[in-house]
Computed example of a mutant assay.
Amino acid sequence: AAKREIVNVFLSLPDDDIIIADPEGEYYPLVNRLGGQVVRLSPSATAGTFINPMDINPNYADDEDPLSLKSDFILSLCELIVGGRSGLAPVEKTVIDRCVRTIYRPYLADPAPERMPILQDLYDELLKQSEPEARRVASALELYCTGSLNLFNHRTNVQVNSRLLCFDIKALGKMLKKIGLLILTDQIWGRVTENRDRRRATWVYQDEFHVLLAEPQTAAYSVEIFRRFRKWGAIPSGITQNVKSLLESSEIESIFGNCDFLYMLSQAAGDQKVLASHLGISPHQLSYVTHSGSGEGLLFYGDTTIPFVDHFPQDTELYTLLTTKPEDKANGQG
């Protein structure tokens, strides 16, 4: 369904940009066929493609201190890295914010590319602080700076200016995938801010969206950045097959409250009841997402709800690029 919309946007809106965060390596055949750019991130030492989570540009925020928004992102990143059920403690948040402002000071005074901070700079600055909480955060960061998971401890070395861009992070594995998704959200935000000045719309597709909603700080940041996407002329889409995890998020009301368009396919019985209570779906409307076939479901647009059937012809090259069905792949279509 998301690929169908991507194709439509690509063909009918040639001045718009399309960016995909792809955690499962499902979009690259389509992107390659349309002449787009696929950026694969891998922890392998031979991969050599790096994205710097500390990147910031002059347009990062225009209505407030850009470092405040960047600090929110880095707090979310540290929350994922440090872990724990309760997230970051208040003192930990304070020392992280203090260190963020310190390490960006030289770059903001003279914004040369070689002055852009990296994760190592944050780690080193945390070790200089007197609070024991700072050392705890630094110890958690060590694995991602000098340890075996140091993929995101380098300056960005790939140009990502293509109109159709796919970040493929399938190779990251379980430990890095959550972090990778969050970092890509921030990278895409940088592109959105640049495009607003160029008066270009940006279509953003974030697959496995529920992954970003598991921790409170990360969920709050993700919902806020999606809200900013819309405010800054982007069209963000969150995609998930794990509706249960999505509905468990503390930010679910904010998510639905900021969505003008919902595209719902067949749903499990338990999820249907919760979705019905959040979205006001009638029993008759629910019948369209109960044991429904491929390409059948409900569209929610503003206050309007429409059942739909979209049976895409299977004897086309485009279908082979869109399908993710195992049976199609077994028959050589995918």
Rank of each mutant, 00 (worst) to 15 (best):
Q285I: 13
F50L: 03
T305H: 06
K178G: 12
L108S: 08
P216H: 08
V289N: 06
S86H: 09
E142T: 01
Q267C: 12
A330I: 14
F167Y: 15
A138D: 07
L182M: 09
N52I: 08
P23I: 02
P106A: 10
N195W: 12
H284E: 14
A268F: 09
W232P: 00
P216I: 10
L265K: 01
I255Q: 04
A2V: 13
S287Q: 11
N153C: 14
L322Y: 05
L108I: 12
Q159Y: 15
E194A: 12
N258H: 11
D207C: 08
H278A: 12
K70P: 03
E26I: 12
D124R: 00
I118M: 13
V223Y: 02
E24K: 08
L164R: 03
S249D: 10
I74R: 02
Y288C: 07
R198V: 14
A138K: 00
G238P: 00
T320Y: 14
G147A: 08
L184F: 05
F261D: 07
K244V: 13
D260F: 08
G257H: 06
D65W: 04
D260V: 10
G280I: 03
F50R: 03
K174I: 09
A21Y: 03
D124Y: 07
L75N: 03
L88M: 08
T193F: 08
R196G: 06
L184N: 02
A171K: 05
A61G: 02
V274A: 13
K93Y: 03
G180T: 07
K70M: 13
F256I: 13
Y104V: 04
E125T: 11
Q314V: 14
V95L: 09
Q333E: 15
V31G: 00
K70F: 08
R230Y: 10
I96P: 01
E133R: 01
N8F: 14
P53S: 06
W203L: 05
L30S: 06
S292P: 02
L149R: 00
